[in-house]
Design a protein around this nucleic acid. Structure first.
Length: 397
RNA sequence: GCGGCGGUAGCUCAGGGGUAGAGCACCAGACUGUGGCUCUGGGGGUCGCGGGUUCGAAUCCCGUCCGCCGCCCCA
C-alpha cells in the first residue's frame, strides 16, 4: 500500500466540513474589513524566502522543502504566506493601500505532532500601506473577531519590537545579562550565546529571570504607538496581555507583534494565530518603502477545537420497492435535483427496500421518497418524514 | 534533527513463543412495501514492513516506516 508522506494527510468528510466552516467564518468577517482575496503560487524561488523570512531562521535553515527544478532553478514550497503575497504585490505593482487575504497550504519539514503537519493550512491577511496605532489595532481586531465568531476561548498576547535597531540592541543587552547568571539550565547556556531571546521561553529558567524590558530600548514614538494601540484594542473589546518575552520567529517583523492562543489546547500547539508589523519587508523585496501589517491563522489547529454547528441536512432519499422501478426512481431523483434539492438513492441493484431504508437512515436523510407499483400507476410518490415517521402522498414536487 | 512510548479487523483496543480475539461499525435475515431499538447469523486481518533467533514468531532481537508525547521550532 502506498501511504501519504510523513506529516502529510488527507482531509475529508466531517473534517473537511469543519475546515470549510472555519474558512467561511473568516471570509464573512474579513469582508467587513474590505479585503481583496489573492491566490499566489505554492512554489516560489528559494531566494524569496531566504530574503524575507530570514537566512538564519530555523524555518529557512532546516524546515524548507527546497530543491532544484528541471531548469536547475532553486525553488521551495512556501513555508508561510507573507513572502509570496508581498512578492505578488511588488511584481504586479498593486495600488495601495490595500488589504489582501489568502488561504492555502504551507509546507515545513518539521517533526510532525498533533496539530503540526508538514503540509498545513493558513488563512492570513496582509494590510499593505497602513501604519500607526489605528492600523495596528484594526489589524489585530480583524484577527480577533473571526475567532470570536467561531466561539473560541482565546487569549491575546502582544509585544513590540520597537524597530530593527531596538530589536538588535535588546538582543545584545539580554545576552550580557544572561552571561552573568550561574543558574541557567544546560539548554539555556547554549541558547544565550546564539539566540538569547529564546531563554525567555524556557519553562525552567524563565520564572527565575528578571531580564531587562525591551520597552526601555524602544524609541519614544514607538512606545507611544504601542501604548495607544493597546488602549484602542481595549476600547473595542479586545482583551490583550503584554508578554515581554514574545518575539516572533520570522526576521521581518519590526513593530507590534502578537500571538493568539487557544485555552483548550496544550502549549505545544496552542498558538492558533499570530502576526505583526513588518515595515521593511516590501522594500527589502524590491518594492517601495511601504509599511505593512499581517497575520496568519493555523486552520489545522483551529479545527482541533472548533465545534461545528449542527445543522440538519435536508436530504431526500429515493427508494424503490423493486429494481423494476429503477428508471422511475431515477426520474424522481433528477426531478428533485432539478428543483435544487439535495437528493440521493441506492444505485446498486438487488438491494431490498429495507436495505435502502437503512442506507437512508445512515446518511441522515430527512425525507424518504417511495417509488413502487402503486405510486407509478397513480403518477405520485409517497414521502416519509424520517424524524416523525409521518407519511403522505404527493404528486411530483 | 534528538529522546521516550506505540503500531493486531473500517474504528477503539485485548492477547505477549504453539490454529487470530472482543466491542462498535459493515452485510444479511427475524409477519412477503418501511430506517432507528432488540435478537440471530455472516463477511473481513500476510498482527505496519524487512531481516534474524527458534521445530514453531503477532509474541523475543535488529533495522526501517508511520503515529503520539517531549525537546527544538512554529500556525
Amino acid at each position: 500500500m502506498i501511504t501519504a508522506l510523513r506529516g502529510f494527510r488527507d482531509i475529508w468528510g466531517e473534517d473537511w466540513e469543519v475546515f470549510e466552516e472555519i474558512i467561511s467564518t473568516f471570509k464573512n468577517r474579513l469582508r467587513d474589513f474590505n479585503v481583496a482575496w489573492i491566490e499566489t503560487p505554492i512554489l516560489e524561488p528559494l531566494e524569496l524566502f531566504v530574503r524575507s523570512v530570514g537566512e538564519f531562521t530555523d524555518i529557512v535553515q532546516k524546515q524548507m522543502f527546497s530543491f532544484r527544478d528541471r531548469g536547475n532553478r532553486e525553488v521551495a514550497l512556501r513555508p508561510e504566506g507573507t513572502a509570496g503575497v508581498v512578492r505578488a504585490f511588488v511584481e504586479n505593482r498593486l495600488s495601495y493601500p490595500i488589504r489582501l487575504a489568502y488561504f492555502g497550504p504551507m509546507f515545513r519539514a518539521e517533526r510532525p505532532q498533533k496539530g503540526r503537519y508538514r503540509q498545513f493550512y493558513q488563512l492570513g491577511v496582509e494590510f499593505i500601506g497602513f501604519s500607526g496605532p489605528y492600523a495596528d489595532a484594526e489589524g489585530l481586531i480583524s484577527a480577533y473577531l473571526p475567532l470570536k465568531d467561531l466561539g473560541l476561548k482565546v487569549k491575546v498576547f502582544v509585544n513590540t519590537l520597537g524597530g530593527e535597531e531596538a530589536k538588535v540592541k535588546y538582543s545584545e543587552k539580554l545576552r550580557d545579562y544572561l552571561m552573568d547568571l550561574d543558574f541557567l539550565c544546560e539548554d539555556c547556556i547554549r541558547r544565550r550565546e546564539r539566540n538569547p531571546l529564546r531563554v525567555l521561553d524556557c519553562k525552567v529558567c524563565s520564572p527565575k529571570l528578571s531580564p531587562p524590558d525591551i520597552l526601555e530600548m524602544v524609541p519614544k514614538n514607538e512606545r507611544d504607538n504601542f501604548d495607544k494601540t493597546i488602549r484602542i484594542l481595549e476600547k473595542y473589546g479586545v482583551p490583550v496581555e503584554r508578554d515581554p518575552k514574545l518575539v516572533r520567529g520570522l526576521d521581518y517583523y519590526t513593530g507590534l507583534v502578537f500571538e493568539i492562543k487557544a485555552e483548550e489546547l496544550d502549549a505545544a500547539q496552542n498558538t492558533i494565530l499570530a502576526g505583526g508589523r513588518y515595515d521593511n519587508l516590501i522594500y527589502q523585496l524590491g518594492g517601495e518603502n511601504i509599511p505593512a501589517f499581517g497575520w496568519a491563522a493555523g486552520i489545522d489547529r483551529i479545527s482541533l477545537i472548533y465545534k461545528p454547528s449542527q445543522k440538519p441536512k435536508d436530504l431526500y432519499f429515493v427508494v424503490r420497492t423493486s429494481d423494476e422501478y429503477f428508471e422511475e426512481a431515477f426520474e424522481v431523483l433528477m426531478i428533485l435535483r432539478n428543483s435544487n434539492k439535495r437528493a440521493d438513492m441506492v444505485f446498486e441493484e438487488g438491494k431490498s427496500l429495507k436495505a435502502q431504508m437503512r442506507r437512508a437512515n445512515k446518511l441522515g436523510a430527512r425525507w424518504v421518497v417511495f417509488v413502487g407499483e402503486e405510486e407509478v400507476k397513480r403518477g405520485v410518490v409517497k414521502v416519509r418524514d424520517m424524524e416523525t415517521g409521518e407519511e403522505f402522498i404527493t404528486s411530483l414536487d
